[in-house]
Amino acid sequence: MNYPESYRYTKEHEWVSLAGDTATVGITFHAQEELGDIVYVDLPKPGAQLAKGDSFGSVESVKAVSDIYAPVGGEVLEANELLTSSPEKLNEDPHEAAWLIKIRVSDPNEFNNLLSAADYQTYVGAES
């Protein structure tokens, strides 16, 4: 699987990409694979304020629920409406079309401190 080099990753299996002060957040290929068929995604409303580490939503498979934690803090700008009607997209295209939310980042350093693609893949390898 391709883990984009420009993204940063967390040990909770989220990815973040940054454009200006807007971060796009999703869950990783590895995460969706562990969860299995995703049936529902619960996301926050735009305007919500998140601190790094806050639980901001959840992803559900038939028999499991996983909380998702904000990898960076800031204001929620947008939640991906595609996932409301088509949660299966999260299985199909987790790193692109099935992003979860966009955040206006309050502290860019939080982004820089996350894992690189290589470090994340090493971490996932070690975990499994």
Binding site: D37, V39, P87
Partner: peptide, 11 residues
């Protein structure tokens, strides 16, 4: 009834 599609039921 064979194995049922619980995924579609939930989606």
């Amino acid at each position: 009834t064979t194995r049922v599609d619980e995924v579609t039921a939930a989606r």
